[in-house]
Design a protein around this nucleic acid. Structure first.
Lengths: 112, 112
DNA sequence: ACGACCCATCGACCAATCTTGATACCGTGC
DNA sequence: GCACGGTATCAAGATTGGTCGATGGGTCGT
């Protein structure tokens, strides 16, 4: 009963950021890769054939949106999808298009 | 078994556009409003207290992404959520984080 | 301590996006 | 036909986003 339906302005910004994080082909491919599990940047660099700087930029975007976390191990940094963020995403899109049950909406001013 | 998991480049662009359409507070609020059913621009203008030009811009963005359709009736234009687009969205986020079943991924080059 | 490697961050640049005000378009009613 | 209301579209400016190359900070092996 939350998500889009009852979003406050703050939630709106947060959710918009979530979607923005996925609104880029490179980042979609990163997420796709991370579905297979934790990966370090060098793996992603290989898989996506993207420059290291570019990848780092997008990983930061995903991280700022809360979609991934990173963990350092030795000289590598591993990135993982955050399950709770994925869940939230599912909740939000699950709520899209679901009426908020305020009863049938009557056209307010025009359109009569 | 499609969505993010097996996305081609074309799908990627399309899905990125879908997410981009939702990556904006104003558009999220529009979608939220449309959950209650068909609405004309004047209703949305009232509900969101947004300028007509701005609203029109965002509605076009949503329409280009395939998330809404419009229908003219008299001098008003009604916008509606496209159920199939909402379904596609659900499929896509449903696939996010779901491993593609290629077996356990072995770290390829580094990270051993 | 040094060099090699992994990665983040910065600066500069170009492209895309958003906002606003002005204008044009299309129905409607007179 | 004319005026008006609802909406799209255009032009211009501000903001944000993405790419690239260079630089710098950790970490490891020697």
């Amino acid at each position: 009963m939350n998500a889009v339906g009852t979003s406050t302005a703050r939630d709106g910004r947060r959710i918009a950021r979530l979607f923005h994080a996925l609104a880029d082909e490179t980042r979609l491919r990163i997420v796709e890769q991370l579905a297979d599990g934790e990966q370090c940047v060098c793996d992603l660099t290989d898989a996506l054939e993207a420059g290291q700087s570019r990848l780092s930029f997008h990983l930061k975007t995903l991280k700022d949106a809360g979609l991934v976390t990173d963990r350092r191990q030795g000289r590598w940094i591993y990135y993982t999808l955050r399950p709770d963020a994925v869940d939230e995403l599912r909740d939000v899109v699950g709520a899209i298009g679901a009426p908020r049950g305020r009863g049938l909406r009557i056209a307010s001013r025009c359109c009569g």
